[in-house]
């Protein structure tokens, strides 16, 4: 465990906490894409199947369980408890256009053709694009609440920090996984436009508003 990896994990955890607090405190999930949240739940459940087969560390097991459980709680809050506040009309991204290509790609390009490894690879590919429905929703409404921006910033930073972790591990441990690296690169690039707006607007106290 190096500092980049730890900061990445913490950033991921902070993102999830911000999201849950936003929904709970404002009693509303307005501006949040339920479709991205469904994709994240699929990502965690397919990736962490190794909870049943491989033990890495207590930290690892704990974080995996937290990610799986919080993603399910988020979906419950959006689709049951605070359903009335959910932005159905703007959350129209077709997630099958992300799920199916990720699955096909995972069947074609993987480290080993076993069920658990193909599902792990699928989750890596799917995660890289899972934020698209959320970014699509923001672009459709043309704005995002600042709390939603903080959530997106923390969530985007997480894979960016992982990239630094992979550079570090390549040199320090001679360890690398091309599938994770390329997908992580794609994932981080998708956030670049948002990062730019976040730094130039939200951090200066302005609302994140897209040019008309």
């Amino acid at each position: 465990m190096n500092i980049f990896r730890l900061l990445g994990d913490l950033s991921h955890l902070v993102a999830i906490i911000i999201l849950l607090l936003k929904i709970w405190k404002t009693r509303s999930c307005a501006g949040i894409s339920g479709k991205s949240q469904i994709l994240f739940a699929i990502v965690y459940t397919t990736r962490y199947l190794d909870l049943f087969t491989t033990y890495v560390s207590t930290y690892n097991t704990f974080m995996k369980l937290v990610f799986i459980m919080t993603s399910i709680v988020t979906i419950f809050l959006m689709n049951a408890k605070f359903k009335a506040t959910y932005d159905h009309n703007h959350d129209t991204f077709r997630i099958e256009f992300l799920i199916l290509p990720a699955l096909v790609l995972a069947l074609l390009i993987n480290n080993e053709f076993t069920i658990i490894e193909v599902l792990w690879t699928f989750s890596i590919y799917l995660e890289s694009v899972a934020i698209l429905p959320q970014l699509f929703l923001v672009s459709k409404t043309g704005e995002a609440e600042s709390i939603t921006s903080h959530y997106l910033f923390a969530l985007g930073s997480y894979r960016g920090l992982y990239l630094l972790n992979w550079v570090y591990r390549y040199y320090a441990e001679d360890h690398y996984d091309l599938i994770a690296i390329v997908a992580g690169l794609v994932q981080t690039i998708l956030y670049c436009d948002f990062f730019y707006l976040y730094i130039t607007k939200v951090l200066k106290g302005k609302k994140l508003q897209l040019p008309a």
């Binding site: 990896r5 994990d9 991921h12 990736r47 190794d50 491989t54 890495v56 560390s57 690892n60 974080m63 995996k64 990610f67 480290n111 080993e112 490894e117 792990w120 992982y162 972790n165 360890h175 996984d177 994770a180």
Partner: peptide, 10 residues
């Protein structure tokens, strides 16, 4: 290869 397939990251 087995060691590489032990995914120790999240």
């Amino acid at each position: 290869i087995l060691d590489q397939l032990k995914h120790d990251e999240l």
